[in-house]
Design a protein around this nucleic acid. Structure first.
Lengths: 162, 162
DNA sequence: TCTGAAATTTTACATCA
DNA sequence: TGATGTAAAATTTCAGA
């Protein structure tokens, strides 16, 4: 991946459009940012090659694909050493229902955002993730009542039981 | 928005491709799911009209646009009544740095995920969001040390100080 | 930057369930 | 009636000058 040569205001303007709607024709983008269409095309290509644009994806409504529950899980560990956390991280990576997973400072060690079809599925998920792992001290569950802002991906039969 | 007529396995297969890469040519999708390109096109159009596909976006790497810090904020309120929370929700909506905001059950009332350039910017953000709001009892900050899974949007000069 | 070729998306129409 | 497939038209993307 090539080094990224400092983004200028044109790049930022293009990114701002693409992150809202990446189906916007380059011609329309060109007009909006006052550049020619080929210039826009060159910049987009470079933004992708340098990894500024990490991916182009469709955002799916979890509710409409049978996953009405969004749940936040705070995980508290005994030990943060990589070799002690590796098994858990591996299980997290394997669970499609886990949309996001951050390693964090503060009281908790991990914060997960998961999408599931039911509380029964959620309980099964927590058993698969945490049960029998001595390094997991405890976890705290917060069920989402709705989101004011969000945009992420959804597992479609690829992960745990949907 | 028309009612959604139960997704079949074709729809799920198409969604599974699009949520990974929505630049995949319809011809390639058609071949993968064993349908014709126009059939795929019609299904995609219907998925968008029914809101199953909420948006088509470019995923931007926050670090590469000058926002290296991802921070989780738990907000504890005095009162959850909509008329008491409306001002805060309005400020949250206006801050581009706030990537995600969920209303949650449990100890906290809101969970925010924000992207900022520096801790100074973060402190300025918390002042704008919380200072002077009697309904905000307290908030708890967790700085992300890295994410194992994630995909979301980034503010590009539209929100707070970048 | 502009122009032209290649590819893709989109539409129209006939067919089948 | 609704959905699919084939073929053609309109855009868009991409390479060359």
């Amino acid at each position: 991946m090539p080094a990224l040569p400092a983004l200028d205001s044109f790049d930022l303007a293009i990114l701002d459009i693409l992150q809202r709607d990446n189906t916007t024709p380059q011609r329309a983008i060109a007009q909006a940012v006052h550049l020619s269409a080929p210039a826009v095309q060159r910049r987009i290509q470079r933004l992708q090659q340098t990894g500024v644009i990490r991916a182009n994806v469709a955002v799916i409504d979890p509710e409409k694909v049978g996953l009405p529950l969004t749940i936040m899980v705070e995980v508290h560990l005994e030990n943060e050493r990589p070799d002690r956390t590796a098994p858990l991280r591996s299980r997290i990576a394997a669970e499609g229902a886990v949309q996001q997973c951050y390693s964090v400072t503060g009281e908790a060690d991990y914060l997960l955002v998961v999408n599931v079809a039911s509380m029964a599925d959620y309980e099964a998920l927590t058993r698969r993730l945490f049960e029998g792992d001595d390094n997991v001290r405890r976890f705290r569950t917060s069920v989402s009542l709705g989101c004011l802002k969000a945009g992420l991906q959804v597992p479609l039969g690829g992960g745990g039981p949907a």
